[in-house]
Design a protein around this nucleic acid. Structure first.
Length: 284
DNA sequence: ATGCCTAGGTATCCTAGA
């Protein structure tokens, strides 16, 4: 099963990039963020083209800002917009989370608040929002994948220049502590433990061309899901060319779930003709 | 240079993104 997450920065503007990408990458489940559409507008724009590719969808939007969606062709059940205890901002609930069960996994599409300025009301909102999310995750099912624009770089390795981010949101200890407190596995970092991997590059000043970015779009899974990861990567090709989002998709491939009937995995017997261990060729 | 893009909405500039 292939799961992808992509902050598209306006689904309406990105439609010419999204549909060919879906046809090429063929993800089974897609988490979208920053659709910037109402539910009605998303359905009008994407309903028919998604159905033609075999996707069901669940969209949770406002219109102007935010907006998240789930696309699936492996089932889409128990759809839930938002999560219990999700805080408001400015007295209004924002469309930043939608979850559903797809292919046996509880999948969340998340657009974590930006935080704007450290110490601001929006920053406090971001931390509260993450606390409430952690409480929901702790109460949730074991097969879990939190996907989306977390607006947090998990470590200094996830920004192009840590010195440039001192005092900025996305890198502060309170944000990182809350990300870690979710208790999930960052499957792209696990797969590429020491590599330079970014998922967002500012549109300005040739940042993408110079690979000056941040890794803030994450797939965080429970251990049972992390153990099935066969591939995990950032699809940088989707950030190239004409009219891209400023974020690239993150793609994760999972092996089939163990069905419980195959019994313990037994290592193959050694070859008796060789009398034990196979030896590597020896250097002279 | 607190900018350099991009998007949405209202309107020909503002907010927001990160």
């Amino acid at each position: 099963m292939r799961i992808a997450t992509w902050n598209v920065n306006s689904a309406k503007q990105r439609l010419p990039r999204m549909m060919p990408w879906l046809a090429e990458r063929k993800p089974d489940v897609v988490c979208l963020q920053e659709t910037k559409l109402s539910d009605v507008a998303f359905g009008e724009l994407f309903g028919e083209p998604l159905a033609a590719l075999g996707y069901e969808f669940a969209h949770h939007g406002e219109g102007q800002w935010n907006g998240v969606a789930l696309l699936s062709r492996v089932g889409l059940v128990d759809v839930r917009p938002g999560f219990p205890g999700q805080p408001d901002f400015g007295g209004r609930s924002e469309a930043r989370a939608v979850s559903a069960t797809c292919g046996g996994i509880r999948v969340y599409s998340l657009y974590v608040p930006n935080g704007r300025v450290v110490g601001s009301d929006h920053y406090a909102y971001k931390l509260d929002w993450l606390d409430a999310l952690a409480a929901d995750v702790a109460a949730g099912p074991a097969e879990l994948a939190l996907c989306g624009d977390m607006n947090i770089a998990p470590s200094d390795a996830d920004v192009f220049d840590p010195a440039a981010y001192v005092g900025q949101t996305h890198v502060t200890a309170p944000e990182r502590e809350r990300l870690a407190a979710l208790g999930l596995t960052d499957v792209v970092r696990k797969r590429w433990p020491a590599e330079r991997v970014f998922s967002y590059w500012d549109y300005r000043a040739g940042m993408f061309h110079q690979d000056l970015g941040m890794r803030i779009d994450l797939v965080l899974t429970s251990t049972s899901v992390a153990d099935r990861v066969a591939a995990a990567w950032v699809d940088r090709a989707a950030r190239k060319g004409t009219g891209p989002s400023d974020h690239a998709p993150v793609i994760v491939d999972l092996d089939e779930a163990p069905d419980g009937d195959i019994g313990p995995v037994v290592p193959p017997p050694s070859n008796p003709k060789r009398g034990g261990r196979t030896r590597l060729p020896q250097a002279r």
